[in-house]
């Protein structure tokens, strides 16, 4: 990674100026059993860019994230980081480039929030090597960025959903990746937590010049927060363009097979979807597969 690429990037310009892709996904296909989930999906993400993956439930957004993070291995096509296939990285080296945040399930109750964030330094440490000053600094900074330092000493199971998500995002920051993969980072959270978390992600991208690829089903959120949106429909890329265009009636109809009324956002002017009264006649087709 060169220093020039890592330098902070002005987020406002991100959607206008073309940049060298950091992540490039080329003709990615993935099947579950005999059912194709992704078919020849291609898109890319540049450093300094925040890209939202959108689409109906079950369309393969999370699957695409897991392929990129090599949590799924049996995909076809090519995924490159800086021109190098992700398959050529060792897990450890890949962990220094890519962090993945997904709601953790399972028993993690006896971990404190701080301990979880410290664990993110794992790829940088030899076995039994204690945390160095730089590691502690990275952990402190990450906790401060999401505002999670207030409950660092508490165990994860005593935290609310919003607090826990802040800890998980802080853990990803502490891993110091160049590409952060987020699976529904603000889903199920109250509006205030959504705003806080989203703002901390944008600030992190701005300061570190890193890239974020996130899945979301909240199109308004995507239109406001992301630089670019990539929409999947029937296993293929149905839209790839500036995030604020994802909520236009044409895109909505192409991606979701349904149109919604929109109103312009008072500050940015981006079209915001407002719910419509239930009426089955509005749905044009099943766009999930």
């Amino acid at each position: 990674m060169t220093a020039a690429l890592r330098s902070p990037v002005d987020v406002d310009d991100a959607s206008k100026t073309p940049k060298t892709p950091f992540l490039s996904v080329e003709r990615l296909s993935f099947d579950v059993g005999k059912t194709p989930i992704l078919r020849d999906v291609s898109f890319d993400v540049a450093l300094g860019e925040r890209v939202a993956l959108v689409g109906l439930n079950g369309v393969g957004k999370t699957t695409a994230l897991r392929c990129v993070g090599r949590l799924l291995e049996s995909w076809r096509g090519e995924i490159r980081l800086d021109g190098v296939s992700v398959r050529r990285f060792s897990r450890r080296d890949l962990a220094k480039k890519i962090a993945f945040v997904r709601q953790i399930s399972g028993s993690f109750s006896s971990f404190t929030a701080r301990r979880l964030v410290e664990l993110s330094r794992l790829p940088y440490l030899r076995p039994l090597e204690p945390l160095a000053e730089t590691d502690r600094a990275a952990v402190d900074e990450a906790l401060a960025r999401t505002g999670a330092e207030r409950f660092g000493a508490r165990t994860l199971d005593s935290l609310s959903g919003g607090e826990r998500q802040k800890v998980l995002i802080a853990a990803a920051f502490a891993q110091e990746p160049e590409l952060l993969l987020l699976d529904e980072p603000t889903t199920f959270l109250d509006y205030r937590s959504q705003d806080e978390i989203s703002a901390s992600i944008s600030a992190w991208i701005r300061d570190k010049g890193a890239a974020v690829l996130e899945t979301t089903h909240d199109l308004n959120r995507a239109a406001l927060d992301a630089d670019r949106a990539v929409a999947f429909a029937r296993g293929k890329v149905a839209f790839d363009g500036p995030a604020r265009e994802i909520t236009t009636p044409e895109t909505l109809d192409a991606v979701f097979g349904v149109s919604f009324p929109t109103v312009p956002h008072p500050a940015t002017g981006a079209p915001m979807i407002v719910p419509d009264a239930a009426s089955p006649a509005r749905f044009s087709s099943d766009n999930s597969r």
Partner: peptide
């Protein structure tokens, strides 16, 4: 010697893998 990796493993296979 592997205790840090075991900690990661208790958080799930996916998380352990993405931590290297």
């Amino acid at each position: 010697r592997r205790s840090r990796e075991l900690d990661a493993l208790t958080l799930g296979d996916e998380r352990a893998k993405s931590l290297g």
